[in-house]
Nucleic acid binder design. Structure first.
Lengths: 224, 224
DNA sequence: TTTAAAATGATAGTAATGCTATTGAAAATA
DNA sequence: TATTTTCAATAGCATTACTATCATTTTAAA
């Protein structure tokens, strides 16, 4: 017997809760693999259906379109990171330590954490890095935001901003810096892999220590 | 008689130099308007052709596809910002002042600069903010990068990183911070407009002072 | 000025994409 | 056992992302 956590997300993200059926869990599992493999624009429900031995129409019963599926995956990811952070910072009082743990959680967590059977968190992390920005750079962003479809990210940013303010109550931009930490982490991992002239860090064997070091360095200077 | 600067870009970005013909300049002019209006994924060459009273096929003679057109526009923007920076920092020696001018140039420049007749720089700035990340978050990034199609951005980042190192030679991450300045600027303008809970700044009447202030504040702390 | 070449327009066509609708069978539940 | 829910299978359609062909206009060179 094993205990599986189910991450619950805003139900506007899907037509039918995919985590509650085998087919739905397969959609999650294989879409992560295929989006990573093809990239989001080349990925289609048809390819996904073929991979899963199912049909396009069946997938459309769970998600309105591939954009919603991406939004679902990204929210899932941030919700999972939130969960890791809440576990790992439990009983930690020093806000500086908390912030260190937070940074470690979203930079390196996917590597050393077990997780959920139908989700490969490490590949999902790749997707968030490579495709995540597409989830909110659309013309529908205002409408989706009003329905709470970015809730997971916003609530995480809120949590982190509080810790930032604990570290230094005088710091003027706690929210901006919270989101910056996430964006910098994702961006510089991406840059290191694809546009190395845009960053100072490098990545060997999928080890993100340099990214973590950089975020700690900047945090220290900014919140001193 | 008027003097128009022509921005020259890597010729891998287009099939035929669009700045050299009326039709080509129209493609630039109207694609900026339409991408801003519809968003990049809904924008098509067919719509553009209709708007311009031309045909799809004619546009395909200039650009391989809409992705290349976006890449062209984004490069054009960064090249133009580089040009503004080089003019405005001419004869400035104090690196702190230089950095201030640089920040002002890419945050607020589109507003108070004349520019080129067939390019609405202010709308183009919007596109860079809303759609710019899609130019390099693709599966072809490595291939395109090897052809120098991100050259304008990289060379700008390089310029700025040098100024950062002048301000503080001990600072460990000059490249990362240079790109951060651009990314933060774009992100937080976008957040302020669409996801305000992710930032601390707000924007009234298209005035980006708060963004500039934030970037100055962070720069000061980081490079102190 | 003629003449060729290059640029554009007009039209058509194709394969793939992004859906929607319908039907019927299987599986779960009452 | 009856009934609702779930899913697969098939078909179909409008749009997208191109490519090809040929006629016509513009330009530039001889």
């Amino acid at each position: 017997m094993s205990v599986e956590i189910k991450i619950s997300l805003n139900d506007g993200l899907y037509l039918k809760e995919p985590q509650d059926s085998k087919l739905g869990r397969n959609i999650i599992k294989y879409s992560i693999i295929l989006i990573d493999e093809f990239g989001f624009e080349v990925f289609t429900f048809k390819k996904l259906a073929e991979k899963m031995n199912s049909t396009e129409a069946s997938i459309y019963r769970y998600f309105e379109n591939k954009h919603m599926l991406l939004l679902f995956l990204v929210n899932w990811y941030w919700e999972w990171v939130s969960y890791l952070i809440s576990i790992n910072t439990m009983n930690v009082v020093d806000p500086n330590k908390k912030l260190k743990i937070i940074i470690h959680s979203f930079v390196s967590a996917p590597k050393d954490n077990p997780g959920i059977s139908y989700v490969n968190e490490s590949i999902l992390h790749n997707i968030v890095i490579s495709e995540g920005v597409k989830a909110y750079h659309t013309k529908q962003v205002d409408n989706e935001n009003s329905k709470g479809l970015f809730g997971s990210y916003k609530s995480l940013a809120n949590t982190v901003s509080k810790v930032i303010s604990e570290v230094n109550p005088e710091f003027k931009y706690p929210f901006a810096f919270a989101t910056n930490l996430f964006e910098m982490s994702n961006n510089h991992i991406y840059f290191a892999k694809h546009l190395p002239r845009l960053t100072d860090i490098s990545i060997k064997n999928d080890d993100f220590v340099e990214v973590e070091d950089m975020l700690h360095y900047m945090t220290k200077k900014l919140l001193a």
